[in-house]
Computed example of a mutant assay.
Amino acid sequence: MGGDKRTEYTFLRKTRISLRFGKLHHCTFDENNPAGARCLEQATAPPGHRGPLIDRCQPSRCHNSVITPDHLQLWRSEEHSLLKLLDTPKLPPCRREQLGRQLNDVQDVIRKADEL
């Protein structure tokens, strides 16, 4: 989902969902209907826990993730940083592979946001 500040304001004003503000996205996880939340797939939540598992968050793969234009600047910066790291000549193959996967996730988020 994308839009300007007015769209974001209207969205927040008209919806009745619990919204968690994050640094790189907003999460619209619905505690009453958690189906589809990537953070809960194949996860064991602590007893009594309700809500998303933030440490398992995958904004590039979760339909609950909302990327605003302000967030997109951070994602593009992350993409730039990863591309610079991947240009390092003596980077170990396992680290290069890990950075490549991370870059793919970042580019998926950017692509998702640009499509809206």
Rank of each mutant, 00 (worst) to 15 (best):
L72W: 10
G100F: 03
H25I: 00
W75S: 02
T10I: 15
L19C: 05
R38M: 14
R96V: 04
R111K: 15
P59W: 08
R61E: 15
D30I: 02
K23N: 11
Q58R: 13
L40Q: 00
Q102V: 07
C39G: 02
A45R: 05
R96Q: 07
K5E: 15
R50Q: 14
R111Y: 13
R20F: 10
L82W: 10
R16V: 02
I110F: 14
N104M: 12
F11I: 01
R50L: 13
G22T: 03
F21H: 11
G3Q: 05
E79P: 04
R6D: 14
C57Q: 03
L99P: 06
F11Q: 03
L82P: 07
I54E: 09
H49G: 00
L85S: 14
K90F: 11
P93V: 12
G51N: 01
R16C: 04
S60I: 06
M1W: 09
R61D: 15
R20C: 02
S65C: 11
N32M: 06
I110V: 14
P47H: 04
P46N: 03
F29P: 01
L74V: 04
D30F: 04
E8S: 10
M1E: 05
R20Q: 08
T28W: 09
G51M: 00
F11T: 02
K90R: 09
L72P: 12
V109A: 05
A35H: 08
L72Y: 09
R6Q: 14
E78F: 08
R101G: 13
T44R: 06
N64M: 06
E31Q: 12
P59G: 08
V109L: 06
T88H: 12
G100W: 04
T15S: 11
T10M: 14
T28A: 08
P52R: 00
N32K: 11
D114L: 13
R61H: 13
G22I: 02
I110D: 11
D87T: 02
G3A: 05
R101H: 15
D70C: 03
N64S: 02
A37W: 00
N104W: 12
I54V: 12
S18R: 05
L82D: 09
S18M: 05
K23L: 11
P52N: 01
D30K: 03
R101T: 08
F29G: 00
Q102G: 03
V106D: 10
P89F: 03
K84T: 08
P52V: 01
R6V: 13
Y9K: 11
F21N: 06
R111I: 07
T10F: 14
E97T: 14
P69L: 10
G3S: 06
R50W: 08
D114E: 15
K5R: 15
S60M: 11
F21A: 07
D105R: 09
Q98E: 15
P59Q: 09
T44M: 03
Q58D: 10
